[in-house]
Design a protein around this nucleic acid. Structure first.
Length: 521
RNA sequence: GGCGGGGUAGCUCAGCGGUAGAGCAGGAGAAUCAUAAUCUCUUGGUCGGGGGUUCAAAUCCCUCUCCCGCCA
């Protein structure tokens, strides 16, 4: 058991202007499962999420709504807190970039960069898209209706000339490549690492890191005309939450560098190129790992507002249940790949794997204890080889899952648990306790003990993925609330106590019986 | 156009030098403790096409083709 080990994991900060959708839920869910896993494994975890509240778009949206930007962000950031509640997320901190602690940190990293000559004042001119908050080269532009110039994203652009501070990103190309070389696990999955390194090898331009064209941002220290460019501001949230600028603080020393930044693949470059460059330039440690996950499609179709097939996490939870939704999202697709949400696969996994394999395993075993042993956990006799093999298979799960979770291979971790669940169903059939009831009652007791104990071990392992259902299952085998960590899987003091009174078993994963009529969102 | 990844059973994918695997779906049977759930057996693939290396190739090399990603 790791003692006093820390684990710092982050989601991106979500742009307040967005409506929370399955993509946001997915990123944070992955972090939540990993954070819970690490906590159960004895780590001191810091799990951070939050909202990105600056930028021209927010300023504009607030103006359109007739409120000041701060009031506007107050209102819309609430939607992301609601999402966290809907999904059962266990973040330790919810950061907002408009908080004083963050403004202080963002200005502090700026000063470090200025002091080291990494930022200089220049001028920017180019085609700028407000919607994307990005500049585009002339060659990238396309023409829309009325000869309007458009960014590759379709956003209208305008010619902007303004003074701007620049970060000397071009000077960091070699050091970044060296860093990737030395830390092969920094970018995951592998295919993404290749993309990033080839991007960096292609040459880096100095990066504009300030704007004078709007005010809703972190003011640049000693130059009130400028606000910080949104990415320098936003990325800094990860160290703000660790205690920066106080690099001597206990929390900064404990949690920085972060263990994993979880991001969608669209913002990988900012996290894998700009962010480590900013940090190294400021003489701060870069994070240990950035994992870029994929996107979801809906019934095979790309999700878009125009198509009207946006998946709202809340709707999934209402329809299928929270743990079922969490399970599906983490089990259906190799983490890092794109995935498809379909009602059919959702219902199949829910019924076949949760209700039939797992839920019914518990129900059949516990019902026999309830009916034949008055709900009292039996005193087991000597374990046979088969018994021992069953218990061991479940007992080995913590060790088997650690490397998988460290690689963010959530689907494989779940599959590994299901190998044991299937083995337990095989064990029940082979031992046939319903036959033993008539022929060898003490042996039946041993078999049922092994089953209940196996279920206890399994339920401990499924907690990170399906916290509520796992808790119910642990309650069903009379597992004390303080003996549910991975150390308790094989700890004899935590094992099912013979004589313990088990509650009347209740189905934990109901089958989905809903009509499948109608299509679309 | 450049770079990278991929094309393996009806579906989703694993295997990446030693004569094809899993889950789901399909078929047959067993059992009856259980949310009619479970278990066993089973149908099914010339591993995208072609060429080469090797005693031996999904697995290495070349080439063609299709799909996806990143960059231009």
């Amino acid at each position: 058991m790791p003692a006093n080990q820390s684990f710092y994991i982050t989601t991106p900060i979500y742009y307040v202007n967005d409506d929370p959708h399955i993509g946001h839920a997915y990123t944070t869910l992955a972090c939540d499962a990993l954070a819970r896993f690490k906590r159960l494994d004895g780590y001191d975890v810091h799990f951070l999420t939050g909202t990105d509240e600056h930028g021209q778009k927010v300023e504009k949206a607030a103006a359109d709504a007739g409120v000041d930007p701060q009031a506007f962000t107050e209102r819309v950031s609430q939607r992301f807190r609601q999402l966290a509640d809907d999904m059962g997320f266990t973040h330790d901190d919810f950061i907002r970039t408009t908080e004083p602690r963050h403004i202080e940190a963002a200005q502090a990293i700026w000063k470090r960069l200025i002091d080291r000559g990494e930022i200089y004042l220049g001028a920017y001119e180019g085609w700028y898209a407000i919607r994307d908050e990005a500049f585009y080269a002339e060659s990238e532009l396309t023409k829309g209706a009325d000869d309007e110039k458009l960014a590759p994203t379709g956003a209208p652009v305008e010619w902007v000339e303004e003074p701007s501070y620049f970060f000397r990103l071009s000077a960091w190309q070699d050091r970044l490549l060296e860093f990737y070389e030395k830390h092969p696990d920094f970018i995951a999955p592998n295919s993404r690492r290749n993309e990033v390194t080839s991007f960096v090898k292609g040459g880096l331009q100095d990066l504009s890191v300030s704007r004078v064209s709007f005010k809703w941002g972190v003011p640049v220290p000693d130059d009130a005309d400028h606000v910080m460019y949104v990415w320098l501001d936003a990325l800094t949230n990860y160290i703000t939450a660790a205690g920066f600028p106080d690099t001597e603080s206990a929390s900064y020393k404990k949690f920085w560098p972060a263990d994993v930044h979880m991001v969608g693949k669209d913002i990988l470059r900012f996290h894998a190129v700009y962010w480590p460059a900013f940090l190294m330039a400021a003489e701060l440690d870069p994070p240990k790992r950035v994992f870029a996950h994929g996107w979801w499609t809906n019934e095979g179709q790309k999700i878009s507002k125009t198509l009207g097939n946006v998946i709202k996490p809340h709707d999934l939870v209402e329809r299928y249940g929270l743990d079922q939704t969490r399970y599906f999202l983490l089990r259906e697709v190799p983490f890092g790949n794109d995935g498809d949400f379909s009602r059919e696969s959702m219902v199949t996994r829910m019924n076949s794997e949760l209700a039939n394999d797992y839920g019914n395993l518990a129900q059949r075993a516990l019902s026999m204890i309830a009916k034949n042993l008055k709900g009292i956990a039996p005193e087991p006799g000597a374990f046979t080889e088969d018994d021992q093999a069953m218990l061991n298979a479940a007992g080995e799960l913590p060790a088997a899952l650690r490397p998988l979770m460290d690689a963010q291979a959530f689907h494989e971790a779940l599959e590994r648990i299901w190998v044991v669940i299937r083995a337990a169903n095989v064990y029940v059939d082979r031992q046939a306790p319903w036959v033993l009831r008539k022929t060898d009652a003490p042996r039946m007791g041993t078999v049922l003990y092994v089953l209940a104990e196996t279920i206890r071990r399994l339920a401990i392992m499924t907690q990170p993925f399906m916290p509520d259902a796992s808790a119910k299952m642990l309650d069903a085998v009379a597992s004390p609330g303080d003996k549910r960590s991975f150390g308790d899987v094989t700890d004899t003091a935590a094992m099912l106590a013979p004589g313990a009174e088990l509650p009347k078993p209740q189905p934990i994963f109901p089958r989905y019986q809903g009509e499948e009529e109608g299509e679309g969102a």
